[in-house]
Design a protein around this nucleic acid. Structure first.
Lengths: 177, 177
DNA sequence: GTCTATAGAGTGATAGAC
DNA sequence: GTCTATCACTCTATAGAC
């Protein structure tokens, strides 16, 4: 017997690989080995609820492993290392960024915006703590987010991690405390 | 009577707005005012051929308006201005980047990779001409592409152009000849 | 008996192809 | 406009845990 919680990381990988529209229920049943009955038992709202749960799971992971450490004395270098690992060195896409760019966006606009806003807040707090003026910290936070997302997109597009990895390297240089 | 060529920019906007999977043929017929018969007359390969033609159209536009000028003496500042206009100051997504992140990617992987590779080549040529060492020019080209793409993703996600616009501003400062 | 987890046939709607 | 395949989803049925 499986639990709902066990299912979410698996669903996350499926959505990452095939997108929201591209991941059909038939495929989800095949990949998870669960019938539709089980899936709708766990997620009465269907695919939308599955994707929502995945976004929530991702947000929670980042909250615990990225945002809170950053606000409680962690270094930017540590954050970038965790990010690098999470995104498999540029080989794994950001599901939130993907959802943001596609038609799926409107449906999950609130969660998508909240994810990046939360990250930005944590980065600003970090940079202010490092002695930067608020305006400078704000600009730095935007730069960091943009560089991570852009690196992931380019690495996926060119099928090469160098865009992501070089972006991280520059961020280390430019913002190391 | 409409021509195939007239249709392509309209299709581009539709894919931009709804994604490849999200743009149903029913919707495309509605928006273009053309019957399915006409669409299949222009694009016998169906949706895939439509998207392919759109990607080709985009590549040609960038080739003429961005890549060639950059290689033939144009400034980076000019390029960034054109890019800013093209992407409506961050309000318009990059269709190629969007396709790169979604399941659509495999189908169009060659065109997607070629688009960014071509852009990178033009940027490297420009930066070398500005006196940068090859390695430095290469790093700069990656940084520019990453910043543009990341800015577009974040601006879409947060529904605010500031990510894209601030990215462009930094690029102007860091790479102005 | 009730609840949760399971499977999967069957629903109408709509997809893209022609 | 017609076609067939497939879509997300509903529903019925059944199992075992308590």
């Amino acid at each position: 017997m499986r639990e709902r919680a066990d299912l979410i990381p698996e669903l996350a990988e499926i959505f990452r690989e095939y997108g929201f529209e591209g991941a059909s229920l038939a495929f989800i049943t095949e990949r998870t080995g669960l019938g539709k009955g089980s899936l709708y038992n766990f997620f009465p709202g269907g695919k939308a609820e599955m994707a929502g749960a995945v976004l929530e799971h991702i947000s929670r992971w980042f909250e615990e492993d990225i945002f809170v450490p950053l606000e409680q004395g962690g270094s930017l270098s540590e954050m970038l290392s965790h990010v690098k690992t999470y995104f498999a060195g540029g080989g794994r896409v950001c599901l939130v960024g993907m959802f943001a760019l596609t038609e799926t966006r409107d449906q999950f606009a609130v969660q998508i915006a909240a994810y990046f806003e939360r990250w930005e807040v944590a980065l600003v707090a970090y940079l202010v703590r490092q002695g930067k003026h608020p305006a400078e910290a704000q600009a730095g936070a935007l730069d960091i987010l943009v560089t991570i997302q852009g690196g992931l997109t380019l690495s996926r597009a060119r099928n090469s991690p160098q865009y992501f990895l070089q972006g991280l390297k520059r961020l280390r240089q430019d913002y190391q405390g």
